[in-house]
Computed example of a mutant assay.
Amino acid sequence: MDLGTRYLGLELGNPLVAAASPFSRTVDGVRRLADSGVGAVVLASLFEEQLRREAERDAALAEHSSQSYAESESYFPPGALADAGPRRHLSLIERAASSVDVPVIASINGATTGGWARHARSMQDAGAAAIELNVYFLPGDPGLTGRDVERRHLDILAAVVDSVTVPVAVKVGPQFSAFADVARALEDAGAGALVLFNRFQQPDIDPETLTVTAGATLSSRAEMRLPLTWIALLRRRAGLDLAATTGVEEAADVVRYLLAGADVVQTASALLRHGPEHATVLLDGLADWMRRKRYASVDAFRGLLAAPADPGDSTWVRGGYVRALGWADPAGFAAPTPDVR
């Protein structure tokens, strides 16, 4: 049985990818994920804010050095290296890539254009097999148009693509008026894959303390419907790879995404709930399903239930919608009698 798949030009042993999570912040965590059988590991993200802070610190150090004697130019003021996050991150990439036999994909998270995007080249040089660009941006400014938001995504992607030779995946949210058009534009701009979808922080309000609370929440299976729909719609209509993320809890969820057309399925929440070893459970379940259904390879059923290639064919979407509302439902809901008066 062949679980092998191809993603971003990389040959993977299977389609299960460990998404960015606290487990991939350390080399030991990456090893645990790899030992559990995942096909690739996405490292925890390096944030634009960290890179900007490092640049500001370096500028301050340069100014301090210019006011010192020449022989003391290498002196760092106390606490200057307290936040060496970007440097540690590059070290993590280098050590992780040399410690495991699966591809290590670096992740960079940002929301604006700027020189920080060129840091992707340092990630590549450190050993990253690919870059996952996580564009985390909620356009709350009423002065921003939809095209402005799309252009920002494309400009950030262009800055990263111009900096590296390894493939680049883009992780985005679903809040676009015409997502298929955005997918095409990202493909034209050099994206090798789309990761669907980013889960934006949704704060809560405590009515007793009159405070806004924020905290990361793990995804649930109910959230997989949206990325499942768009992967199925784009499978035969886009030329880039598709990575599913969100809502994976059991092997059947991995199968669902693959039937819709995903090239790989990322998971983080399930591994955080059950431990990295849960990846083995998911893969064993996938292999068992393939044996029962007599599929010799993942490619044999990937995209089997995707939407038709013709974008003008609305049957896949409209038909499902109508059936869901009970019209022409084979379970016994009769369609309303048309008014012929």
Rank of each mutant, 00 (worst) to 15 (best):
G332N: 11
P308L: 05
A80E: 11
P139N: 12
F179D: 00
P77V: 15
L133C: 12
T211A: 02
A178C: 05
A189G: 01
R291T: 10
L33T: 09
L272K: 04
R237F: 13
E250D: 14
G326F: 02
P227G: 08
E223R: 05
G215P: 02
S107K: 04
L12I: 12
V255Q: 01
D141T: 06
L196A: 07
L258I: 15
L233T: 11
S99L: 11
H274Y: 08
S220P: 00
G85N: 04
L226P: 02
A214W: 09
L325E: 08
A260Q: 10
L259R: 15
D58N: 11
V41Q: 08
P336I: 09
H89L: 07
V104Q: 04
R52K: 10
P203H: 09
T213I: 13
L305F: 06
A59W: 09
L61I: 11
H119G: 01
P338S: 13
A328M: 12
R95S: 12
L210G: 01
L272M: 15
R302I: 10
A117K: 05
A97H: 03
Y75G: 01
E187C: 07
A185I: 03
A60I: 06
P336L: 05
W116V: 08
I205C: 04
T267N: 00
R95M: 07
V248L: 09
T145P: 01
P139Q: 09
T217Q: 09
D58S: 03
D329F: 00
D284F: 01
D125S: 13
V164M: 08
A80M: 07
N198Y: 14
R121I: 12
L233A: 12
T245V: 15
